[in-house]
Structures are given as structure tokens and as C-alpha cells.
Design a protein around this nucleic acid. Structure first.
Lengths: 203, 203
DNA sequence: CGGCTTGTTGAAGGTGAATTCAACAAGCGC
DNA sequence: GCGCTTGTTGAATTCACCTTCAACAAGCCG
């Protein structure tokens, strides 16, 4: 029997369990019992906390997005050099490998967004927030003279996020030659061109 | 009762029916009866032609990819000017609107590719073929003096396809400001920069 | 301690989808 | 027109999953 836990603890457990289950079976294909199994509980216990499975899945996906986004922001927080910030941010937008849970989860949602307005809105919002993140980096770098932008920051930010997203899909699909390092180089090649910077850290 | 058809005709019908059903319910969520309904048949009839539903879904997705790819090639076929070719190809890589069937279908597969090697291989192959398509355009344009490429054609081709892919997802998710025209402009902004061409057709 | 709330189980019931198959209709070759 | 193959139906069966619920264990608070 599973050890009894408080409401809050268990809900957090279930969100993680739902994420794991969705990684294995997809957000559409996942079953109540698979979530329960991941949590080490019975389906009844899951239903006790989330009478509607789709609510749990939504929360789990939302949590996954926030974790991805806030991890990027956190990694950014320590840095001051615009070049470092840009290079780091490009890196943190890519999956570490094909099994990267956060990015895998995001990829699963891409298709869903075509037929579910809620997921569409969530992904759209995530996209826009990431664009803003890049815009801030680009504009402060520009103000500090580190970058000479070749277009408005909205255009550049959108293209940077778009490149990340697309290469995330390729990496997750295990493209034989396009791995994380290669993808980072491809995006950096774009970033160098539009910032007029070599993006080498000036030590 | 449905009118009786030949093996080949019916299989083509079923592939289209499966595509429609997947657009509504996703490749994971689609049911045999939903495919049958789209085809105007009973589930038994579908099973007569495809004893395993997943075989039908695979064929349907494969057919969708080929239709998308060959439509792009066909649109390219009539053109000779490298600038026209590039501009047209960028356009043809984007969904015409949020309901574009071909792109919607491709987006549905992105997540699947993370857990299914067959779909991963199909999408990888499609990506690479599209990269080659761009490489050919860029290199012949370069040879003819229309483009002055700022990087090797593999890098540029990959980035162009990546941008298309990512904006396809955004459009399908109905981003409120990022529609097809805007996405095309964003990609063109990249293409102008890396080809050194204004990409205006010299009439 | 003792009663109450909260979390969990396990089994039972209901539902719906996949699967199977006997029957039958529609053409085609002869 | 006859018989055979091919395509299709509809009903019966089976199976898997969701849902409900009575029972019970674990703390907490009086």
C-alpha cells in the first residue's frame, strides 16, 4: 500500500507521475491506470485527487512549461554580459538530449494545440514570453554597444525562439547528425549575423 | 449502405478518411469507428482493408507528408529565377491558414516522433529532403550570381526549414498576431540577410 | 484516548471500443 | 445466367478502461 500523504504532496506527486506517463504514451494516449502506476497508487486514489483526468494532465503540462521557462530565467539570472546571456539562452532553449523530459513534453503538445484552444493558448503564451526574453537580452546588449542589431528585436526574438523550437523537435526525433551541439551552432550562426557580434566572451 | 468499390479505390478513400479523422482526434486519439465514419463505412469494412488500424494511420501520415513535399516541388517546377524560387518555397512551407490539413497533420506527428522510431524516421527524412531542396535553390542562385551566401548552404537550408516548421506550429495554434503573412516576412528577413539579396523579383 | 477527517484500497458494475464472423450483395469471367 | 471472388454489413463476443463505493488505515484535534 502506498504511504499516505497530504493533499499538496500527493498532488505534486501526481503531476510528476502524469508527466512521466505522458512521456511514454502521449497526452492523448495516456490512461488513468498508467498515471496511477507511475504514482504507485490505484486509479481510485488518482480520481480522489483529480476527479477528471484531463484536469490533471492540463496541470501537469502547465507545470512542465513553467519549469522549462523558469529554468531558463534562472540560468539567465546570474549573468551580466549580453554575449554570455545570449549564448546561454540559446543553449537553454534546446533539449540536453533526445530524452529531455521538458522539451519532449512541449513537443507532445504542439499537435494538440491544433485542436485544443486551451493548449494552443498556453503554447502561444510560452512562445511570446520566450520572445520577450530574447528581446530584453538583445536590446540591452544593443544599448550597451555589444550588439549591432540588423532588424527590430521582435523579428530577431521570434526567429531565435522559432529556431530553438524546431531544432528541439529534430533532436527529440533523434536526427542522426543534428544533435544539441550542432543545433546550437546553427542558431548561433544566425545570432552572430544579426547581432554583428562574434559571440565570443570577452574575458 | 456504402457503394462497393475496388481495393485500390477504397484504400485511397480510407487514407483520406484516416487523415480527416486524425485531424479531429489526433494520431493517438483516433478510433477505428471514427475512421469508418469518415469513410462512410462500418468498422468491419475498414478492418477488411486494414486489419491493423495503425498500419492505415501510418500510410495516411506517410501520404500526407508526400503530398506536402511533392506539392512544394511542383510549385517550384515552373520557376527559373532563383529569387522567385526562394520566395515561393518559403511560402509553400507555411500553412495557408490555421486549418491547413497537411501542416496540421505534420504538427500532430512531431510529438509522436519522440516515442515512435518509425514516425521519427519519417519526419527526419522529410526535414532532410526539404533542406536539400533549399540547398539546391541557394547554390544555383549563388552560382548564377543572384545570391551571395553568408554561410554554407547546409546551415542556411537547415535554418530555413527550421523556421518554417516552427512558424507552422505557431500558425496552427492560432497565434493572434503571427499569421502566415507575418511568418513569411520573418523568414524572408532571414533569407535576405543570408543571401545578400533584396529578394525582389527583377521584372 | 476517541471521534472525525482525509487518503487509499479493492472489488463490482457499467460502458464503449475492438474484434470476429456468418450472411449477403455486387460485379466479373465463363 | 451461374458460380466465384470481393467488399460490406450487423450482430455477438470479448476485452479494457472508467467509475463508483463500501471498507478501512492514519493522523489530527478535542
Amino acid at each position: 500500500m502506498a504511504t499516505r500523504k497530504t493533499r499538496t504532496e500527493r498532488r505534486a506527486d501526481l503531476i510528476e507521475a502524469a508527466q512521466r506517463a505522458m512521456l511514454q504514451h502521449g497526452p492523448d494516449g495516456v490512461l488513468l491506470n498508467q498515471v496511477a502506476e507511475q504514482a504507485g497508487l490505484t486509479s481510485g486514489a488518482v480520481l480522489y485527487h483529480y476527479p477528471d483526468l484531463s484536469d490533471l494532465l492540463l496541470e501537469a503540462n502547465q507545470a512542465g512549461m513553467e519549469r522549462f521557462y523558469s529554468a531558463r530565467m534562472r540560468r539567465l539570472a546570474g549573468l551580466t554580459d549580453p554575449v554570455e546571456k545570449l549564448v546561454m539562452t540559446i543553449r537553454s532553449g534546446l533539449p540536453v538530449d533526445a530524452d529531455d523530459a521538458d522539451v519532449r513534453l512541449l513537443c507532445e503538445l504542439g499537435g494538440l494545440a491544433g485542436r485544443n484552444r486551451v493548449y494552443a493558448a498556453l503554447l502561444t503564451s510560452l512562445f511570446d514570453r520566450q520572445v520577450s526574453m530574447y528581446q530584453t537580452i538583445l536590446e540591452t546588449g544593443s544599448a550597451q554597444g555589444a550588439f549591432a542589431l540588423t532588424a527590430d528585436s521582435l523579428t530577431l526574438g521570434r526567429n531565435l525562439v522559432a529556431l530553438e523550437d524546431a531544432y528541439g523537435y529534430r533532436i527529440v526525433a533523434r536526427h542522426p547528425t543534428l544533435r544539441t551541439d550542432e543545433a546550437a551552432e546553427l542558431i548561433l550562426s544566425y545570432a552572430r549575423q544579426v547581432t554583428g557580434s562574434s559571440l565570443r566572451v570577452t574575458a
